[in-house]
Design a protein around this nucleic acid. Structure first.
Length: 292
RNA sequence: GGCCAGGUAGCUCAGUUGGUAGAGCAAAGGACUGAAAAUCCUUGUGUCGACGGUUCGAUUCCGCCCCUGGCCA
């Protein structure tokens, strides 16, 4: 006999696809509560830039895991996964439906499939590795676990560094880690809805939304954020628009150029999301084209 | 109207001492296992402004015309 699993829903879609308002409607109709599954809306510092839910949204239906992590703190999919499980279990215990909403493919994959059993990144080791050049890291990997270099491009700084960090922590090849079983997949019966819109429409909505963000006080928000001096390497600092506006504040480019750069970055992000959703989501995903 | 500088990829420009061209950005496709809005990989034929001339051969030299800036009338 198969155990009876609780139901849960994941609603994903590219940036500016309208997934958030779709999700609110969905939650209202299905006795649901919304759980964030977006890697940047997790942080509290940039609600406007990250298009986090508005006060009006929050009034309509309960939202969880939005804008609560301090940008200077380290965060990870692993941490997200346990928070997500806790939150969803609690929602289910109250007889409600968990409705995950967000665009981060990596997080969605973790929720659905779990993560390989391996230790979290160690900040001390990461800081040490961060001082090395790609060539130096590659040389060390070549010496110790040469097979990982077949899989990782030498320019792919992040994966290169992660593989070497893992070696330093565990003394083993990062590839062997991927043979470990996956743990922590959330034990629910998932319905996955991937919303989309024609590409031209997404592009237009991206532009419109950025002008709306400007009206909503994005410039001041970014200024405040920059005054916190959170390192540029942190993901929160790489939210689309932040570095572009920093260049504008520093007098390196015009405001119009900063806006244009932010638009380009957002379009690139949407592109990467499309690729991910096309190839990485499970077969039974419901693909839904939104209109209007 | 005169002089000067330009007109080369969707954009900004480089280049060809005459043998039909290449960067950045954009665009398209792809990868992805605790940093993921991250990180990375692949993809460049375009009447080289139009028309004539010289030449085996012109985007390159010459003439003329058109367009865009700037300066002078």
């Amino acid at each position: 006999m198969q155990e009876l699993r609780s139901k849960a829903v994941i609603i994903c879609g590219t940036t500016a696809s309208g997934k958030s308002s779709f999700a609110i409607d969905y939650a209202l109709k299905n006795n649901g509560e919304i759980i964030n599954i977006d890697s940047l809306q997790i942080y509290k510092e940039l609600p406007i830039v990250t298009a986090s839910p508005t006060k009006e949204d929050l009034k309509k239906v309960p939202h969880h895991l939005f804008n609560f992590i301090d940008g200077k703190d380290e965060f990870s999919v692993g941490k997200y996964l346990s928070l997500a499980k806790e939150t969803a279990d609690e929602i289910i215990s109250r007889g409600k439906l968990p409705v995950f909403v967000g665009g981060s493919g990596f997080y969605i994959s973790a929720v659905l499939n779990g993560l390989h059993e391996l230790p979290e990144a160690d900040i001390k080791i990461r800081n040490k590795v961060s001082k090395m050049t790609n060539e130096e890291i590659a040389k060390e990997l070549e010496k110790n676990t040469p097979e990982v270099l077949q899989k990782i491009n030498i320019n792919d700084r992040q994966r290169l560094s992660r593989a070497y960090e893992y070696f330093l922590q565990e003394g083993k090849s990062f590839l062997s880690a991927k043979e470990n079983k996956r743990l922590g997949a959330l034990p629910y019966d998932f319905e996955i809805i991937c919303v989309s819109r024609p590409k031209d429409e997404i592009n237009e909505r991206i532009e419109q939304r950025i002008y709306q963000m400007l009206d909503d006080g994005m410039e001041q928000e970014i200024k405040n954020f920059l005054s916190l001096n959170i390192p540029e390497q942190r993901t929160i600092s790489k939210a689309d628009g932040v570095q572009s506006f920093k260049k504008y504040f520093d007098g390196l480019i015009t405001k119009q150029e900063a806006i244009q750069e932010m638009i380009f970055k957002s379009k690139h992000y949407a592109k990467r999301q499309r690729t991910w959703y096309k190839h990485q989501l499970p077969e039974n995903t419901i693909r839904k084209e939104l209109i209007g």
